[in-house]
Design a protein around this nucleic acid. Structure first.
Lengths: 135, 135
DNA sequence: TTATCTGTTATATTAATTATAGAACAGTTA
DNA sequence: TAACTGTTCTATAATTAATATAACAGATAA
């Protein structure tokens, strides 16, 4: 299993953090299509949070096609592959990036510095999966 | 003045939207250092929101050094220049970018496509300031 | 069959956040 | 004096986030 640490003092809700951590796990290939995820109850206990908080994160991931939920097999990373980059997603991510990029422009970052930053984070994410498989 | 439109149905709070719009205005050079901003009361009336909501956005911008607030001159874009890219900000923006980039990786974007997207948004922001000055 | 696990749903409560409202204060400006 | 400025205080309503408890339906293992 992937070790997931939550920041209970963070401004972003626990169920959002959990959703993001799982997505980061997939991006870094620590989690691969078909891999099982813990049940809502055991995961909640492991993380020290409520069952419904985990369920909320699972519902988001299911809704976007990142996971499948079967009453029999439990929860798995979608074996049929990940959701694609459609127009809806693109418009969304643009809106999210706009204020972030705007602020870095205000603070004096030029295009090259911004690109370098993005590239660093990009490689940092991939690097996270270069350890021994933990699942 | 810069025309600002708020989405009252958005998931992100009004005062955050307003903060971001002003930052986007600075990034696109529609707002320049020294430019005045409306008083909390008149801005609130123009936007159709409460005075305290505008004040909250102003406090955030002041706290980060984007604006200055004088009891005499009112509110102005910081004439002494914008805040810089310090370690604190860098660590912060990295944390914000991490889940966004992770999801695009999951969805099959490669580094080049991601870079192109960033570049497009970057130029879209600059393009916003290429109209006649509205202030 | 019984017991135990699974996801799911429903209801309830608590705490925190968001947005609004009205009032007042201190200072500046016309 | 009158009208404006930012700021602060108190209060309220609505929404969101997190927890808690219970129950249901289905699958699984003893």
């Amino acid at each position: 299993m992937v070790i997931i640490s939550l920041d209970l003092q963070s401004e972003s809700p626990i169920y959002i953090q959990l959703r993001n951590k799982i997505i980061e796990g997939i991006a870094s290939k620590q989690l691969r299509p078909g891999d099982p995820l813990p049940s809502v109850r055991t995961f909640a206990q492991d993380l020290g949070v409520n069952m419904h908080t985990v369920n909320k994160a699972y519902q988001l991931l299911k809704q976007d096609g990142f996971i499948q939920i079967h009453r029999q097999k439990g929860v798995v990373i979608n074996p049929d592959g990940m959701p694609s980059v459609d127009g809806n997603y693109l418009a969304n991510v643009r809106e999210n990036l706009r204020p972030v990029i705007s602020e870095s422009v205000c603070r004096g970052m030029n295009k090259e510095e911004l690109m370098k930053l993005i590239q660093e984070v990009y490689e940092e994410i991939q690097k996270g999966g270069e350890h021994d498989d933990l699942h």
